[in-house]
Design a protein around this nucleic acid. Structure first.
Length: 884
RNA sequence: GGGCGGUUAGCUCAGUUGGUUCAGAGCAUCUGCCUUACAAGCAGAGGGUCACUGGUUCGAAUCCAGUACCGCCCACCA
């Protein structure tokens, strides 16, 4: 670096150093004798692009991993992506649709080719973007959940659990997404209060021969289009209003099918009319009632959400269109009593936002009971800790109520379920077609390969990603019968910390813990740091439709990656939502510039080897050495508690306030003058220590300056420089400097008040116990001549108090005595009140009897300090009065 | 409906088992400065009944109870 510009330019610097890091393979990790520190990335969607949530998450990850690396650990951050079956498949379907192709027409294999093309074209962009952010992932270890090895891991896992008896196929009411044409898990359904209508319908009592009598009952429903699937009307057995209905049969309006009236406690007497239409095929609860009462199940809605021929009427109509039409028909038929406005929770698909249709279908399930209780114990025992802890409660609640996991999806993009059906409907589960054939032939020796039909469904994407902390190191999985111990897995597992959003605590975090316990017999990570959700500054979630999400790459382009990282970290405390504001990124950029310019100053110093160290510089060097150690300890404490933004703020203030505003100002030679060698060396040393402290949060600028601050060779990097260590120091050094600084502040405050230019040198007298070695420092920082005196004499000027010291600025200009008097009297009043408070405490017997000795001691000190201040003030007031 | 968390300065948040002069930080605001590294800067200043009500205690932002509001999770009263 030859000449330093007055402004820091991130762009020139960042690409250069990232390329350098890559070239030297600094991010790469192999097992060695050092302590491992491992993070697996929360795999983003393979075709996703970077958004602010990723920026937050990956910045935190990178801070942790860089810190660990500098702490001397063998840091390994494994990157990768997941295949996101629903999201990706729906994108590919949409693309094919634009080309006029339906996926059913081209078939599974052809479709998958398109999907892989899509993945090749759009995949991995996000990983490129993470490089821009400075993420130090071990790219040689990049994984994808659908790469062949990891797919094998998934299939093997399925077979493993099947053979263990924990996977079963069951007919269940599932959440059907009629747009994506797949079942989705309970967790992927979002309930939103939705404005709808409550339709009150007359059902006439049958005369027993399928003809209506003139008696009727009224039911209330939000889904009149499903009445054709009704199997019964249900009332509460205790409901006196409906006793007369016992044993009766009623007729479904419009189609006149006869159904019985049944009784079940499930029906709430005071809700609706107390009569419930039971539609087992299209309602979860009704299905349960149907099971209890042996009711037939009649499905009238098809996979796309349209009525089928079993509905008898409105065949082929979409369920919502049918709802409108049937209302009209019911009204015309005289069955519609009234329609109420009604708000009720409706389930929507997380992926497609389609209204979920409860649907009966055959699905694969994984039993949760054992896995959940193991995973709960992992967290309750503290082997995995949540940060913040509050998520523990949420986690426990879920684990105690976990329902079996529906792991099949009616999609093609994903790992196909390794179940093969025999012609007679029996099936075998094996990891390969060959093994399946063998197993099938054990059942029926006449079976040939072409007789077997593999299950059409694929597995839930989370069924891949729950293996992530294991499979990225050892795709064969320890559950595999031929498993051989793997060096990577043995070394890197369990991973250290996981950084992720609380929204996937059940989808992903809980299930990784389950897999970890099942396959490894221990937790997959020791800490889980939950970030908040990134919102805009008025609290709205960032979303494409609102357009309130900035493009992180634009921000990096404009402000630099270091600034963007700081901007995110400044406003993030664990578990709290992040209110993102570009102003914070600007603050980050300003910090870069501050670091840059302080370096310009330091680098510009002329050194005179012969020169003796200036007294003010010596004091400053001693002080900053202590201050650095003091702060390093504090920063370490913050990191150990995952208070990343506090750690950052502590470093920020150390650099800006302590190093720049105090230290550098104190040692800075006069214009054109050289600095002595001892001070110069100390200054460079401090600067380098500070760079190391800052590096995990701002990797680029720190590398740039670190490379320049001393002679470096190819292959040197700040990335592996050791984290500054806190050293022992004398606390008195800090205290006496702080006292001097307070005096300086007092002078500066007076300057401001009296409008005295900083250039104008002042004459300052100090009365009381003040270290003489601090005098040169005060003289320099306050631009004043300092004398420690026993008496101020008859000098004209302005006084102020610092703790129990009294200071006096001599001024030629006339001083407003009245003003001074008033100021002192106010201060006196405050002190007297304060003293009264302290004395009240001390004279309270119960206080002195109960409070710890240290607290009482402190109160006595307060009393003494206050007394001496009062004395000083009273003297001063007298003097002022006399001088009038 | 059930559970959990929150409410501290204009904004975002600290405040670590009740006790160091405890009411803090950053940003924002205001005042004065182009002082030879930095105006993306320097030096100062103002600003809060710690949501409300009661209780425990010598002592409460901190512990307890209730109230109000906010947020999150779980749960399809059709």
């Amino acid at each position: 670096m030859k000449e330093l510009a007055a402004k820091y330019s991130a762009k020139e610097v960042e690409d250069k150093w990232y390329a350098y890091w890559l070239k030297n393979r600094f991010f790469h990790s192999e097992p060695n004798e050092k302590q491992p520190y491992t993070i697996v990335i929360p795999p983003p969607n393979v075709t996703g692009i970077l958004h602010m949530g990723h920026v937050l998450n990956n910045t935190l990850n990178d801070v942790l991993i860089r810190k660990a690396r500098m702490d001397g650990k063998n840091a390994c951050w494994v990157p990768g992506t997941d295949h996101a079956s629903i999201a990706t498949e729906s994108k590919v379907v949409a693309k094919l649709k634009d080309m006029g192709i339906k996926k059913e027409d081209i078939g599974r294999e052809e479709f998958l080719k398109h999907a892989w093309d899509w993945k090749e074209e759009h995949g991995g962009i996000i990983l490129e973007q993470l490089r821009k952010l400075g993420c130090s992932c071990d790219w040689d270890r990049t994984r994808f959940t659908m790469e062949p090895e990891l797919s094998d891991a998934v299939i093997n896992t399925f077979v493993y659990f099947y053979k263990k008896g924990w996977i079963y196929k069951g007919v269940r009411m599932v959440n059907w997404d009629p747009v994506a044409h797949t079942a989705v898990s309970d967790d992927e359904v979002i309930h939103k209060d939705t404005k709808s209508h409550f339709y009150h319908l007359k059902y006439y009592i049958s005369d027993g021969n399928g003809n209506p009598t003139d008696q009727y009952l009224v039911i209330a429903t939000t889904r009149p289009e499903t009445i054709m699937a009704d199997a019964a009307i249900c009332v509460n057995p205790k409901d006196e209003r409906h006793f007369w209905l016992k044993g009766k049969k009623v007729l479904i309006p419009l189609i006149n099918r006869e159904i019985p009236v049944i009784e079940d406690d499930y029906v709430e007497m005071d809700f609706g009319t107390g009569c419930l239409k039971v539609t087992p095929a299209h309602d979860m609860h009704d299905y349960e009632i149907g099971l209890r009462h042996n009711l037939p199940v009649l499905e009238i809605i098809d996979d796309s959400g349209c009525l089928n021929e079993k509905a008898e009427i409105l065949i082929g109509e979409d369920r919502f269109v049918a709802r409108k039409k049937i209302c009209k028909m019911l009204e015309e038929a005289g069955n519609l009593v009234k329609v109420e406005e009604y708000i009720s929770p409706v389930g929507y698909s997380e992926r497609t936002d389609a209204v979920i249709e409860p649907k009966l279908s055959a699905q694969w399930f994984l039993k949760m009971e054992k896995l959940a209780s193991m995973a709960l114990e992992t967290v309750e025992s503290g082997r995995t800790q949540f940060i913040p802890e509050k998520y523990m409660n949420t986690y426990r609640h879920w684990m105690e109520n976990a329902r079996d996991w529906c792991i099949s999806r009616q999609l093609w993009w994903g790992q196909r379920i390794p179940a093969w059906y025999l012609p007679d409907g029996k099936f075998v589960v094996e990891s390969t077609a060959e093994a399946a054939l063998e197993a099938a032939q054990a059942i029926d020796p006449s079976i040939k390969a072409e007789d077997l039909r593999q299950d059409e469904d694929v597995l839930d994407t989370w069924f891949s990603s729950w293996l992530w902390p294991i499979s990225v190191f050892d795709p064969q999985m320890p559950g595999h019968p031929d498993h051989k111990p793997n060096a990577d897995l043995a070394y890197y597992y369990p991973t250290s910390d996981l950084v992720t959003g609380p929204d996937i605590i059940f989808f992903w975090v809980a299930r990784m813990i389950m897999a970890g316990e099942e396959f490894m017999g221990r937790e997959p990570f020791s800490h889980v740091y939950f970030t908040g959700i990134v919102r805009d500054k008025i609290g709205r979630k960032m979303s494409k439709t609102l357009g309130n999400s900035p493009n992180p790459l634009d921000l990096i382009e404009n402000y630099g990656a270091d600034a963007v990282r700081i901007g995110m970290l400044l406003c993030s405390s664990a578990g709290n939502d992040i209110f993102y504001d570009e102003a914070q990124v600007k603050q980050g950029a300003a910090f870069c510039n501050k670091i840059w310019n302080s370096y310009r100053l330091v680098k510009g110093f002329q050194v005179d080897e012969e020169l003796a160290q200036a007294p003010a510089a010596k004091v400053a060097v001693d002080w900053f050495r202590a201050k650095l150690s003091d702060t390093v300890a504090l920063v370490e404490d913050h990191y150990s508690k995952f208070r990343i933004s506090d750690a950052l703020m502590t470093i920020y203030k150390l650099f800006w306030d302590d190093y720049c505003a105090w230290y550098l100002e104190a040692i800075k030679p006069a214009f054109g003058q050289p600095v002595d060698k001892a001070t110069y060396d100390a200054t460079l040393y401090f600067f380098e220590e500070l760079l190391k402290l800052i590096h995990p949060v701002m990797p680029f600028i720190t590398e740039e300056l670190w490379q320049d601050i001393a002679e470096r060779r190819e292959g040197d990097t700040i990335m592996y420089a050791p984290t500054p260590k806190a050293e022992a120091f004398d606390p008195e050094v800090l205290k006496s400097f702080e006292l001097a600084a307070e005096i300086v502040n007092g002078v500066r405050g007076t300057r401001n008040q009296k409008n005295i230019a900083p250039k104008q040198q002042l004459s300052l007298m100090i009365k009381g116990a003040f270290h003489s070695e601090m005098i040169p420092l005060v003289e320099k920082m306050a631009n004043a001549n300092v004398q420690v005196v026993a008496d101020f004499g008859a000098a004209q000027g302005v006084g102020f108090m610092v703790r129990t010291l009294e200071a006096f600025i001599v001024l030629d200009t006339l001083v407003n005595v009245e003003e001074e008097l008033e100021k002192s009297q106010k201060e006196l009043e405050y002190q007297q009140k304060f003293l009264a408070g302290v004395r009240a405490k001390l004279s309270n017997e119960r206080f002195t009897a109960n409070a710890p000795a240290a607290v009482i001691e402190n109160e006595r000190k307060k009393e003494a300090d206050s007394l001496s201040k009062i004395e000083i003030l009273e003297n001063k007031i007298n003097q002022l009065k006399n001088s009038k």
